[in-house]
Simulated assay, not measured.
Amino acid sequence: MTAPAADTAFFRDRVVLVTGGASGIGRAVTEKLLAAGAKLAVWDLRDDRLAELARTYGAQVLTRHVDVSDKAAVDTAAAEVASRLGPIDHVVNNAGIIGRRMTVRELDAAELERVLAVNLKSAFYVSSAFCRHTSDKPQRSIVGLSSIAARTGGMVGSIAYATTKGAMSSFTVALAKELAPAVRVNALAPGVIDTEIQNDVFADPKQIAAMADVIPLKRLGTAAEVADAAVWLLSPASAYITGVVLDVSGGR
């Protein structure tokens, strides 16, 4: 069964910013919104992926190398988006990293700060910039990326990642209250999704098969399936939903 297309009448000419939007889940969100006629700004650190996105979609997308853990860089890039494309209507705070595996006993302060900065501080910086460069259109929205690791604790050695995702869930609820009723704020909590970042973690096919076996739907999710949920939360189809963290985990 084909997933429903994004609401082209709604998204046409709306300005959407997707962080980490050049690959994985972010790329899937970007492509669905481009197909719906939105004006996209995509920030990423992967210059090769940004270049490929620009070659594929040309003037339809504004691609920029932006370190979202750097507030000054975020503020400068957000001002450019508003100047080039118009006030920002929607944000997908997708950028994130798993980080190097480390236990509390092995704590690496620099690595901890890196994971906190990319996964959590960036959401503050980008959401703040959105508020200063947003439109006055109805049905504006923000979607963030949490993870089921927020409630399961993730794998041993991924404590920094799991902690930031738990904080993202709390951030979502708090920001939803702060920005209501003008802007809705929700988040997705993906499970094990078949993307590069997950394949880097689960490199062994046997390990991937074992992971799939504990998921009630007996398979990994796809980036497109997470993107469908993200676009739905951005759209008026979810108009009475805010402050929600939606699992996209196959029932896990």
Rank of each mutant, 00 (worst) to 15 (best):
A160F: 06
R151N: 02
W43K: 08
D48C: 00
V118Q: 04
M168R: 04
A77T: 10
M102D: 02
G221E: 03
V226H: 03
A51G: 05
V29Y: 14
N186Q: 11
L40C: 12
G58V: 08
H90P: 15
A73C: 10
T164L: 00
R105D: 04
D204L: 00
T2N: 05
S170M: 11
T56S: 07
A167M: 06
T172M: 08
M211D: 02
T56A: 07
G221D: 05
C131P: 11
V115C: 01
D48F: 00
L50F: 02
A210I: 09
V244H: 09
N199W: 05
V156N: 12
L188H: 08
D213E: 10
V192L: 01
L62F: 14
N199I: 07
N199R: 12
G96Q: 01
K206P: 13
A237Y: 15
E113I: 10
V104A: 05
A54I: 02
G86N: 02
A79Q: 12
D75C: 05
G86H: 00
L145G: 01
V214L: 01
F124L: 07
T56E: 06
S23G: 05
S170F: 01
A77D: 03
P87D: 13
A167W: 13
K206N: 11
A210K: 14
N94L: 06
I97Q: 00
R27F: 01
D108K: 15
A9Y: 00
V29E: 15
K177I: 10
Y57K: 03
V29Q: 15
S23W: 03
A38V: 10
A51P: 14
G251V: 12
